Simulated assay, not measured.
Amino acid sequence: MSAEAGQWWSTDLTRIVPGEIDLGGYPVEQLIEHASFVDAVWLLLRGDLPDRRRSKLLEAALTASVDHGPQAPSIAAARMAATCGVGLNSAVATGTNLLGDVHGGAGQQCMQLLDELVQRVRDGAGVQDAAADAVSRHRYVPGFGHRFHPRDPRRDPLLGLVEDAVAEGVVDGEHLRAALAVEAALADGRTRPVPMNIDGATAVVYAELGFAPELGRGLFVLARSVGILAHAWEERGSGTRIKGPIPRTLLAGYTGPATREVPRGR
């Protein structure tokens, strides 16, 4: 093989030669024995193995994001696709392809907001003032509030783990403090608070662990793919064919013209 061909897809991630596989410099047989799947995710994205505390924190965020039931558009789409005779991989791809800016992108957007606030605090602003200003400039603050849960049940355990990590010196807590300040600013003057949702809580975890915002979205897609796969597999076993978005006994509302004749002699 020529040097030019060898460099065409050169990579720092994986070394492959006959009989050997290294991921980030670690022999795969040793990773199989001594590392977890989450460790391997960190290794490929960050270039080295995480310590036990960071691995646990990342695993908690991924676990919290695996599923939110068939009312989530990505799950519903995957289930619908599974009844249409496509392969399981196509059903999963149908679901994951719905994870965009609106459904699935709030975690990345929240990380970007928290990064902005952390930088303003580093530049000398007060965290509460910076948070109040950010809230005033956003019609919708990503990562806060939930259309279904008054208080997202995933918020407290995730933030509790981050607080423990801050106390142990594992992470510095800047993004956690920024997120809590935003939460407080959103509650100011309201009769009902607007707590962090899963996107906000995992944004805190991923940001504290040093992941870039776009990777935060990628990690959410990775985690939610588990739920998408499980729902697609369950729906395939139901035996239902061509399951639409609403029950067959219901008809979609029609708001177009009344029934009319096609003009003759056209």
Rank of each mutant, 00 (worst) to 15 (best):
D101S: 15
L159M: 06
Q109I: 06
L219H: 04
G256Y: 04
I198Y: 06
A60W: 03
P213S: 03
V205E: 01
R137W: 08
D199I: 01
E183D: 08
A212S: 12
W9N: 15
W233Q: 14
S36W: 04
P245T: 13
N89F: 13
A187W: 01
K243W: 13
H138W: 10
T83F: 07
G216F: 03
V170L: 06
T11F: 08
L99G: 00
T240A: 13
T202F: 04
A91N: 04
L215N: 04
V182Q: 00
G145L: 02
G169N: 08
S55W: 07
A203F: 04
R241C: 01
G216Q: 04
E214R: 11
R177L: 02
M111I: 00
G104P: 02
A181T: 00
H103K: 08
A40Q: 15
R137G: 10
V262T: 13
V135P: 02
A78D: 04
I75G: 04
L62C: 06
Y254S: 08
A181S: 09
R224I: 00
H146D: 05
Q119S: 13
H146Y: 05
A230T: 05
R190H: 10
S36I: 08
S74M: 01
D172I: 09
L113Y: 02
A76K: 08
M111F: 00
R217P: 05
N197T: 00
L44W: 08
W233A: 14
G143K: 06
Y254Q: 06
A5R: 13
G69L: 05
A35G: 05
R15F: 12
A76S: 12
S136V: 13
W42E: 09
C110E: 02
V262C: 12
D133G: 11
R53L: 10
K243P: 11
L57E: 05
A93S: 12
A184K: 09
D152Y: 00
G104K: 01
D22M: 11
W9A: 15
A184D: 10
G265P: 01
A184F: 05
D164Y: 08
G126P: 07
P142N: 05
W9E: 14
G239Q: 08
T240K: 13
W42I: 02
A130G: 07
A203R: 01
D22K: 12
H103D: 07
R155E: 09
E214D: 14
Q108W: 00
L180V: 09
T259H: 15
V170S: 06
S74V: 01
G6D: 12
